[in-house]
Amino acid sequence: MASDEKKAEILKGLHDSVVEYEEEKTVEVANEAVAEGLDAFEAIMGGLAKGMETVGDLYVRQEYFVPELLLCADALYAGLEVLKPHLKAESHAEPRKIILGVVEGDIHDIGKNLVKVMFDAAGWQVFDLGADVKIERFAEEQKKCGAQVVGLSALMTTSMLAIPRIIKTLRDSDSTVRVLVGGAPLNPDIAASYGADGYADNAGEAVEQAMKMLQQA
């Protein structure tokens, strides 16, 4: 079992290597965490996820941009690959679930992929439907997996018109599901007029918005 001092050092190492997008270093520290007997859940949440939280803040403050975020995400996933097999079944509660997808007619998925990283890092179970997702599929998948939140992304003024239709099919299927939307042509007013429960201006804000929506539910 790692000493408190060693544990703090490993968690900081995981945090820093994600923030500095050092993929190999992240794997190295994650392996060290396993070797030292650190609880994998703690290493993920206290190290990798904290790192992505910092990355999200840097993105919102325009200190990091898409290239940096993508590389931080690579480091995060490399660390998760090492640590996830060591998770104990009882070490964490049932995760929150979110479905993500770029709406029908649109293949611009950079924003959605960054949002996925943030939810992965925050410990959510993410069901990523990809891009150009047919309207009905969101409700079908939500019924199957019971996700509490559905996140919809659109980058085009034409594809954004699919959003109110998707929200209607979701509400018809499960009135409790919360819908978060984002993408360049959207704003909070349009999101509200489409019947969405929340709007995220960027990937760094998405998890916080989703948590707020669930608290208001």
Partner: peptide
């Protein structure tokens, strides 16, 4: 090339 109700531009 775009087709269908929601596409508005070519996609790679």
């Amino acid at each position: 090339f775009p087709e269908g109700e929601f596409q508005q531009a070519p996609m790679a």
